[in-house]
Design a protein around this nucleic acid. Sequence first.
DNA 1: TGACAAATAGTACGATCGTTCGCATTCTTA
DNA 2: TAAGAATGCGAACGATCGTACTATTTGTCA
Lengths: 196, 196
Amino acid sequence: MGKGAETRERILEQAVRLASRDGLEGLTIGTLSSELGLSKSGLFAHFGSKDELQLQVLQTAVERFEELVIRPALRAPRGEPRIHALFENWLVWADEEAMPGGCPIVAASVEFDDRPGPQRDFLALAHRRRFDFMAKAARLAIEAGHFRADVDPDQFAFEMDAIVLGHHHTHRMLRDPKAGERARIAFERVLASCRA
Amino acid sequence: MGKGAETRERILEQAVRLASRDGLEGLTIGTLSSELGLSKSGLFAHFGSKDELQLQVLQTAVERFEELVIRPALRAPRGEPRIHALFENWLVWADEEAMPGGCPIVAASVEFDDRPGPQRDFLALAHRRRFDFMAKAARLAIEAGHFRADVDPDQFAFEMDAIVLGHHHTHRMLRDPKAGERARIAFERVLASCRA
DNA sequence: TGACAAATAGTACGATCGTTCGCATTCTTA
DNA sequence: TAAGAATGCGAACGATCGTACTATTTGTCA
């Protein structure tokens, strides 16, 4: 746990920042190293290949998502409160100052959704887990009596994911200041249709 | 209006195909020219710069969207039938064989949403017009008595856009065969909440 | 403190990027 | 059909890409 790991952390933080703006392919070893005051070869040695760098960037982003969105939601009571917390955390996530280009996972997903390889595999798995988490939250809401018993948890996950994507798009591309409000109204409608 | 325009069409068709898979930056003049059996410089001469090539790719994609999604919808009667046609055409659009990487406009939007420049400007305008079209369709549905008078057309546009994005994501990244069904159920719920 | 390992820098490589320029070919049309 | 414009090719440019190798510095610990 020496100096190497510390440097790698510094590299990955900046790398996530760049990847959120320019994508995983737009992220370049030369640019990254010069912005950090490191040599290209010195930085490269930490990862061995660009593929590996990209994978670690994704890994870092996913960990940060779980830390800032998932884990705080888990501290809320099961059922609708937890779902509500998850949703609100997720909206804030899109404005993380450490990711000036928006969610790097969304960016990478669009970039790699048609290119087989380890990046795509990693992203697919991460998304699958995210979906499962949402579906499980819905299931707990059913058990808690907040949601009706005939609510389809997977359908709920789909709609929640869609609203977040719509928010991301409206917020970042259209710069619409009402994006958050729009997303909340839409989600509230979904919630209303699920309630017991 | 001779041979030049014809070649340019051929170039742009293949360019859209590549851009849908690899993004606008991943689209490279060398690859594009060799796949078409043209010389790099000969192809380049048609556009003068990569920026211009990218812009024309976007222009081509938008024109195709209007031809395959918007215009057919306009042939349906105002109100809910037109909205329904718009939605269904849009879902089919994501599977256009000429765009094996999915909607290039979605890809480019994520790619350029934080990079100022003519590409971003073009995309923002295109999206604005798409939103306006959806909102107008909702307004016509209100006038036709299909939708309640207190429906917010802009909110409707947001939710429709979100569902299409969710479908795109679930379909292309997760390869979930139920993506279309999920999107239809979600949209039906939105429609139900709007009906008079 | 000295030896060994870990971390970083330096340099160079082949490939490819977007772009320029001059020349050949092909079209159009007077 | 001859002239001129439109179109396309070939070669080359400087820059940058990811990567490989060899030094040199820095850190760790017996």
